[in-house]
């Protein structure tokens, strides 16, 4: 008999009983379907240590690393503490240490956390303002800095958080920072694998974190970064990326401009289209896609058709939180 803890609930798992059955017997509202470890509907996360290996079969490596498991395939070997969804608990407080403009619409925000954050390069956190307004932002630095985190905050029209971060947030102000989240991150387990990284706008943030982490870890495969925006003014860190290109022979950078003619040194076209043209064979490559949801979704299929395995495609679509403006009721 093993003890299973879920939030405030403590359950008992009989020997020979799957974790899914324990949860269902105890009235936990958990999705499930095939009970064979195929459909992955009943995925949960272990909060206290690695789950039985069998319960992680077929999951992406990044999910395994984060202790996700399939409840229907889990026969607990120890007491377990689990969560049904990714945790969003707030982890630490942070103080704004610096603000600098990256381009006209994007600010580089640097915060100093009270406690070091155990994250993987490419993950995001939720940042919370004192009144509770919360938004997700990708960490733009590598794990070299675990208390000093950087973010690329793009100003969105009527964006409540981004406008405040641009216009009102001051150095010395405090924010709350969540547990790191997301599955689009770098693992150093296959250092010779070629990496393709495609980002639009502030999608460069997680990619920059991944690139600097990979290079620090001595990644020896090729790294190809394509950063796109409508115009050259929408890009940033061009000089920095070109410097990095000079320092690392295996790093290649292509800034892409999709609107009108591209200035010298820029590729004309959407970043994903330029990338696919330049790299038509992606078998055994690992691909990271970050930024505009349409680009991310389209590029997923494109790189898959060029040979990348679906298990090697890591994506982070930047969905914009809908603005909760008052609804005008026309009937009244």
């Amino acid at each position: 008999m093993k003890k299973i803890v879920l939030d405030e609930q403590v359950m008992t798992c009989q020997s020979g009983e799957s974790l899914l059955d324990t949860l269902l017997h105890n009235g936990v509202d958990i999705a499930y379907s095939c009970r064979q470890g195929v459909c992955q509907s009943c995925m949960v996360r272990s909060l206290a240590g690695a789950p039985p290996a069998m319960s992680q079969r077929g999951l992406k490596d990044v999910r395994q690393q984060q202790n996700y498991l399939l409840a229907c395939q889990c026969y607990p070997e120890h007491d377990m503490e689990i969560a049904l969804n990714a945790q969003s608990a707030f982890f630490t407080e942070a103080t704004v240490a610096a603000k600098a403009m990256l381009n006209a619409e994007t600010v580089l925000l640097t915060i100093q956390c009270q406690k070091p954050l155990d994250f993987y390069a490419g993950q995001f956190v939720k940042l919370q303002r004192a009144d509770g307004l919360t938004r997700s932002y990708s960490i733009a630095n590598s794990r070299l800095h675990t208390t000093k985190l950087t973010f690329h905050v793009r100003r969105l029209p009527n964006g409540q958080f981004s406008e405040w971060a641009h216009d009102e947030l001051q150095i010395g102000d405090t924010l709350k920072v969540s547990e790191p989240q997301g599955l689009c991150f770098y693992l150093p387990d296959r250092p010779t694998q070629n990496l393709l990284l495609i980002g639009t706008g502030s999608g460069l943030a997680p990619l920059a974190g991944i690139i600097s982490e990979a290079l620090q870890q001595g990644h020896s495969g090729e790294l190809h970064l394509f950063h796109g925006s409508r115009t050259a003014a929408g890009l940033y860190w061009i000089d920095e990326m070109q410097d990095l290109e000079r320092q690392h022979l295996n790093f290649h950078y292509t800034p892409c401009v999709s609107n009108g003619t591209a200035p010298a040194g820029f590729a004309a076209g959407r970043a994903n289209e330029v990338a696919i043209q330049a790299l038509p064979k992606l078998k055994d490559w690992r691909v990271y896609l970050c930024g505009h949801p349409d680009m991310v979704n389209q590029a997923k299929f494109q790189v898959f058709l060029k040979g990348a395995s679906s298990t090697d495609i890591y994506a982070d679509a930047f969905h914009v939180t809908p603005n909760l403006s008052p609804v005008i009721d026309k009937s009244s």
Binding site: C34, Q36, V38, Q40, K300, F301, F304, S310
Partner: peptide, 27 residues
């Protein structure tokens, strides 16, 4: 088959092949 979540699609194709091979499935 397109215009949808690719990971979910892959999971569905996996279920389809498992079934076609007479493997464990409960559909």
């Amino acid at each position: 088959f397109s215009n949808t979540n690719m990971d979910e699609q892959i999971a569905k194709q996996k279920a389809f092949f498992t079934m076609s091979f007479g493997g464990p499935n409960s559909y």
